[in-house]
């Protein structure tokens, strides 16, 4: 199957082209399956051939992802996938780089790399499977676990408040930040495709059900009967309405706090409801949205922020081109000689 670059580029890509020959070893019923399926669709839709993509991961259930796609891949070490991905992207700007990570991998042991990946804006897509638990190590709390959670490592309940991944990404200056839910496959597919098309670091948090160690953690957001009440689907330029009949909305109070209002009650109209703008220069509203949490608020899903800024690697390439233009391509003999030489006859 000696495929050439030309005929590959001309091809239409199908999700099946991104499937590897490996047996998928996640637990039956795990949310990761839906993510894998939708990711393959998104890659096909974005039209990048498998041989020009590299998936990089760390350690954890989510990090087995690279084995299950037919692209190039590195299954790295715990937490370090963004750093490996950054080195690859700097060396090879022509390669499409994706990272699969989890809440423990990305935000606990890999927190530092996460933060700097967000601020640098290299063209890397980072998908964080948030199941609010450590799966592969059998059920300890993760940095996104709720306070009070009882697990093997917290038999009397966790005393730690969780981190909000979207808040963290926004706080570090990410140019594309989104959230979606494994069970909401249509939404999941759309968000991944948007991430694929973003130029710069794209961060996607996926609420992922670990049916073994934290089953139903996101039931409020994924269950068809509940999700309309408990999630707020963000749409560019649209008022932030939610609920089965889209009668509820988010309004800002006089002291700039979000509150839930109901259309038609107390004279509230749709004009009172905040309109979503993912392209706002200031990420303040996006951050506010990221802090809204169940059960007090519906949790927003969709694209919180999507702004275009030059990527790390493009700035670096420009700088190299500028230095080359000024100094010329390097002359090795000249470099070794340096400025001050003397000769011994």
């Amino acid at each position: 199957m000696a495929t050439t670059v030309e005929n590959m580029a001309a091809r239409e890509w199908k999700p099946a082209d991104y499937a590897s020959d490996q047996d998928v070893r996640w637990c039956p019923g795990c949310g990761d399956y839906a993510i894998l399926a939708q990711a393959k669709k998104a890659l096909a839709a974005a039209g990048v051939e498998p041989d020009r993509i590299t998936w990089v991961s760390g350690i954890g259930c989510s990090s087995r992802f690279p084995y299950y796609v037919s692209t190039y891949g590195i299954h790295g070490i715990h937490g370090r996938a963004p750093a490996i991905a950054t080195g690859l992207k700097i060396a090879r700007p022509d390669i499409t780089v994706w990272v699969a990570t989890g809440d423990g991998d990305g935000l606990s042991i890999g927190g530092n790399h996460f933060m700097h990946a967000m601020r640098r804006n290299a063209d890397i897509k980072i998908v964080l499977f948030n199941n609010r638990i450590y799966g592969l190590t059998k059920g300890q709390i993760s940095p996104t676990s709720e306070k009070g959670k009882r697990t093997v490592s917290t038999p009397y309940g966790s005393v730690e408040p969780p981190i909000h991944p979207v808040s963290a990404a926004l706080g570090c200056g990410a140019t594309f930040v989104a959230r979606t839910v494994d069970m909401n496959v249509k939404h999941l597919g759309e968000v991944l495709e948007r991430a694929a098309r973003h130029k710069g670091t794209a961060f996607v948090e996926i609420y992922q059900n670990c049916n073994i160690f934290n089953d139903g953690a996101f039931k409020y957001a994924s269950d068809k009967a509940e999700r309309d009440e408990h999630t707020l689907v963000l749409e560019q330029g649209k008022p932030m309405l939610f609920g089965v009949d889209k009668k509820k909305g988010i309004r800002m109070t006089a002291n700039m706090q979000p509150e839930i209002v109901t259309l038609g009650e107390n004279g509230v109209t749709v004009a009172d409801v905040v309109v979503h703008d993912e392209r706002a220069d200031n990420p303040g509203i996006a951050f506010m949205l990221s802090q809204m949490a169940y059960p007090d608020f519906p949790e927003p899903i969709g694209v919180f922020r999507a702004v275009e800024l030059p990527t790390y690697e493009s700035l670096l390439e420009e700088q190299i081109a500028a230095v080359r233009a000024k100094k010329g391509p390097g002359d090795l003999a000249q470099l070794l000689r340096g400025n001050d030489t003397w000769e011994v006859a």
Binding site: T54, V56, Y72, I74, G76, I77, R80, A83, I84, A85, T86, G87, L88, K89, I90, A91, R92, I95, N112, H113, M115, H116
Partner: peptide, 17 residues
């Protein structure tokens, strides 16, 4: 890099590339 580990890991990524 942001730390020593990232520097090493970035070198791994670049070498793979």
């Amino acid at each position: 890099a942001e730390d020593e580990i990232a520097a090493m890991c970035a070198a791994i990524g670049a070498a793979y590339g």
